[in-house]
Amino acid sequence: MDISINGSTASLEKECTLEALLLSRKLNPAVLLVERNGEIVPAGTFAEVLLCEGDSLEILHFVGGG
């Protein structure tokens, strides 16, 4: 199953939730801001989101800035 993550294509071996994807990439879901197909995924609901073929994810976090 192919999805897009921050503009790059990623192949997932099997269906998984957003939270499982983030954890598999060693990302801490608690500090992430995620858009799925242009819609914000509210914090705390990542485990309820089942990813689908063709999904487009934007995964951001807070970084240093002025």
Partner: peptide, 28 residues
């Protein structure tokens, strides 16, 4: 205290863990 938002990168920890809790975040 201001912060920015960017696409996450491998190995990047982000900034929030370094900001004391009493600070009010002002994202830009």
């Amino acid at each position: 205290i201001t912060v920015a938002m960017r696409r996450v990168e491998k190995g990047s920890e982000g900034i929030v863990g370094h900001i004391p809790e009493h600070m009010r975040l002002l994202p830009n």
